[in-house]
Simulated assay, not measured.
Amino acid sequence: MERSIDKLIFLDHQSVSPVFKEALELFYHYSLEPFSPLSIHQLGIQSKKTLESALESFSSFIGCSPDELVFTGGIWEAIILGIEGFWRKNSLRGKHILTSPIEQKPILLLLDKLKREGAQLTLLPVDKEGMVDPKAIEELSTPQTILCCLQWVNPEIGTIQKIKEAAEICEKKSIAFFCDGSYAGGWIPIDLKKIPISLLAINPNQFNGPKGIGVLYIRQGIEIEPIIPGLNKELGLWGGTENMASIVAAAKAAEITTKIFKEKIEKIGYFQKLIWERISASIPMVSLNGPQLGPNRSIQNLNISPEFIGGEAQVLSCDMKGVLLSSGPSCVQKNLRISHVFKAVGLEYQKAMSSVRISLGITTTKEEIERFLDIYIGVVTKLREMSIGWKKFLSKKNSE
C-alpha cells in the first residue's frame, strides 16, 4: 500500500527537491504548446522573445551575461561539457589538472578517463572537515597546469570551499577554474562579476526548478570543444533545439529563489541548528561529520553518526515511520563500502558506516522537524537496544 506523499516527512532535499508550482505550470504550458525559438513564424518569434527573457532572468540570478550560459539535458551533461570540453580544446598547451579527492564521484571518474587520454592529475589535500587550502593550488600547480576543478559545496558532509580565493589564485596563475556549483546555486549568493570563475555548473532542481536540465556558465574568452555539436543558440556547444519548457521553468525558479532567499536562509539555518542541538542533547555517542555549523557548512546539510548502528538500518527504520533520509552520496549506488569522501577526510570506519544525511529544503516545516526528531531519537534508541556493539560498549563502561 502506497503512503500519501503529503504525509511523509521528506528530509532528502539534496537528492532531489520539489518543483515550485509556478515553475511547474510554466513547464507544463511550454511542453504542451508548440513553442520553438528556431521557427520564423509568429509562434517562433514569440518563443524567441520568451526564451530571451528567461535567459536574462537566469543570468541576473548568478551575475553573468545571457551569452555566457549553455543549457544542457542535466547537471552531469553540464559538468562533462565544462570539464571534458575544456580539456579537448586546451590540452595541447598543458596536460596537468588539479582537483580534490572529495569531488562528486562521477567527476573523479571523468577525470580518471581523461588520465587515460594523457591528463596528469593531482589531488589537492583536504583537512578532516573536507576543506581545501587555496594556497595548495599555488603550491601544486606547474607550468603544465591548465585546469583546476573544485566543488563549491560538498553534498555529503556540507563543506563550503573558499571558492573566491581559489578562483583568484587560478586567475593569477592563468589556470582555468571549473566549479561544480550543483549544491551551491540557490543556497549561496553567486555574483560572477565578483568571482573570476571560468566555468560553473548549476543544477536548477536544487533550488526547486525542473529536473533534467543543467546550466553551464562559460566566462567570455574561455574556449571549449563541443561534446554534442549543435547549430542552435547554445553557442553551438550543445546539440538540439532549446528545451523551452525547462529553461523557462528554471528561470522562474531562480526568480522565486531570489525573492525569498533571505527568508529561506534564515528558516533553514534555524532548522539545522534546532535539529543538531536536539539530537546532540538526546543521543549519546553521536558525532557531526564535516564542518561545525557556521560559515563553512551548508545550512541545508547535516551528516551525523550515532555510533554502533548502521546508516542503512536507520534510513530503513525511519522510512517505515514516514521519514525519508539518506545514507551515503545521493548519486552513487549504495554498497557496504565507505564513501570516498569519508576516506579522504579520515573518518573512522564505524562512524562512516553509521552515518546518515539529513538535508533540508524550502518546503520543510517546523512541525515536520519536531515529528522527525521524536521519530529519529526513538529509532536510534530501538536500534541500539538490538546492537551487540552498543551492549558491549555499555557493559565495558559500567565495569570501569
Rank of each mutant, 00 (worst) to 15 (best):
G186P: 09
Q300V: 12
Q14E: 12
V153L: 12
W152L: 05
E68S: 10
L111I: 00
N232W: 10
W390M: 03
H13D: 14
E77R: 10
L200W: 03
S327K: 13
N289Q: 14
W152Y: 15
E348T: 08
I247K: 10
N303I: 07
A254P: 10
S59K: 10
Q220E: 15
L11D: 08
K48E: 14
S305Q: 10
I83Y: 06
V341E: 03
G311D: 09
N296V: 03
I279N: 01
G181D: 06
G181R: 07
V248L: 12
L235W: 03
L394T: 11
C170V: 02
D319L: 15
K252Y: 07
S53F: 11
S39K: 13
S326D: 08
V315K: 13
T258P: 01
C170L: 03
S174K: 14
S327T: 15
V323A: 12
Q144W: 01
I279K: 00
I190R: 04
L8F: 04
L237P: 05
T72D: 05
N205H: 11
A251Q: 02
H340M: 02
I375T: 15
A136R: 05
K321L: 15
H13Q: 15
M320P: 01
L235M: 15
T142K: 07
G85K: 05
Q333T: 11
G212H: 07
K162P: 02
G322P: 12
S287P: 00
A253Q: 12
Q292M: 14
E277W: 03
G236A: 09
L316Q: 09
M244F: 09
G290N: 10
G73V: 04
Y349C: 05
E84C: 01
Q104E: 13
W390C: 00
S198Q: 04
G209C: 10
H340K: 11
S47M: 09
L109H: 06
K193M: 07
D12S: 15
V215Q: 06
L43S: 08
M131T: 08
H13V: 11
L98Q: 02
F207W: 03
G221C: 08
P134A: 12
L24I: 06
A54P: 02
W276N: 01
I197Q: 00
E33K: 11
G322Q: 09
F35H: 14
P229M: 02
Q220L: 07
S174R: 13
G240F: 00
K392R: 14
E171T: 07
N243E: 13
G240I: 05
L111R: 05
E129K: 13
F20N: 09
K233P: 00
L43T: 12
E242A: 13
P284L: 08
L26Q: 04
R357G: 14
E165I: 11
L110F: 08
R116C: 06
G328Y: 05
K193L: 08
E33S: 09
L81T: 01
L123M: 15
K321Y: 08
Q350L: 10
L192T: 03
E368V: 04
E234Y: 05
S387T: 02
I9R: 14
D180K: 01
P189M: 09
K162H: 15
I202H: 02
L8S: 10
S327P: 03
I375N: 09
I107Q: 04
N205K: 09
I227V: 10
L360M: 12
I169P: 01
G322Y: 02
C318L: 13
S91A: 07
N208M: 12
Q350N: 13
A119Q: 06
E263H: 09
